[in-house]
Deep mutational scan, measured.
Amino acid sequence: DATRCSICQKTGEVLHEVSNGSVVHRLCSDSCFSKFRANK
């Protein structure tokens, strides 16, 4: 199964994995990581 970025939905390489309870968010770049943090 292809890994997909939680923010931009791009498949491919994942730079960050953030687990939040039972959910793991995968983020492909620092910019997506920043957006993820801002959205929480």
Rank of each mutant, 00 (worst) to 15 (best):
N39V: 13
V18S: 08
E13L: 04
T11Y: 12
K40T: 14
V24T: 11
C5P: 00
D1G: 15
G12M: 10
C8G: 00
G21W: 01
N20G: 07
S22W: 03
V23T: 14
D30F: 02
L27M: 13
N39F: 15
E13F: 13
C28Y: 00
Q9I: 02
K10W: 03
C28S: 01
V18D: 07
C5T: 01
V23F: 12
S29A: 04
K10R: 10
S22T: 12
L15S: 13
K40S: 14
E13C: 00
S22C: 02
S31T: 13
R37M: 12
S34N: 12
A38C: 02
G21C: 04
E13I: 03
S19F: 09
A2M: 15
I7H: 06
S19P: 13
L15R: 13
N39K: 15
F33G: 11
H25S: 09
F36I: 11
S6F: 12
R37P: 08
R4L: 05
V14K: 03
S6R: 06
R37D: 14
V18M: 06
R4G: 07
R37I: 03
S29Y: 00
D30Q: 10
S6K: 06
F36V: 10
S29R: 01
K35A: 14
A38M: 11
A38K: 06
R37N: 14
G12N: 03
K40G: 15
A2C: 15
N20K: 09
G21E: 12
G12L: 06
V24F: 05
K10L: 05
I7W: 07
K10P: 00
R37T: 13
L27G: 05
D30N: 01
S6H: 09
D30E: 11
F33H: 13
R4W: 02
D1K: 15
L27Q: 05
N39R: 14
A2W: 07
E13Y: 03
I7M: 07
C8A: 00
C32Q: 04
S34V: 13
E13D: 07
T11D: 09
A38H: 02
L15G: 08
E17I: 03
N39G: 12
C28M: 01
D1V: 14
G21Y: 04
R37W: 05
K35P: 03
I7A: 05
F33A: 14
F36P: 07
S6G: 06
H16T: 04
K10Y: 03
R4I: 15
S34R: 13
R4H: 11
H25L: 06
Q9N: 05
A2R: 10
K40C: 15
R37E: 15
V24L: 10
S34G: 14
G12S: 09
N39Q: 15
C32R: 01
H16E: 11
R4N: 14
C8D: 00
D1W: 03
C5H: 03
C8N: 01
R26M: 09
S29V: 02
F33E: 15
K10C: 04
F33L: 15
S6Q: 05
L15N: 11
T3E: 14
K10H: 00
R4P: 04
H16Q: 11
N20Y: 09
S29C: 02
K10V: 01
K35W: 01
N20E: 13
C28V: 01
S19N: 13
V23K: 14
E13M: 10
D1H: 15
D30C: 00
V24C: 07
R37A: 12
R4M: 13
S22D: 03
I7Q: 14
T11H: 14
A2E: 12
E17N: 05
F36Q: 12
C8E: 01
A38N: 03
C32L: 01
F36N: 01
V18L: 08
V18G: 03
V23N: 14
F36W: 15
V23R: 12
S6W: 08
R26P: 10
K40R: 13
D30G: 05
V18P: 06
S31V: 11
L27I: 09
K40P: 09
S19K: 15
C28D: 02
C28I: 00
C8M: 00
D30V: 04
C28G: 02
R4V: 08
T11R: 05
I7E: 04
S19A: 07
I7P: 01
K35L: 09
T3F: 08
S22L: 07
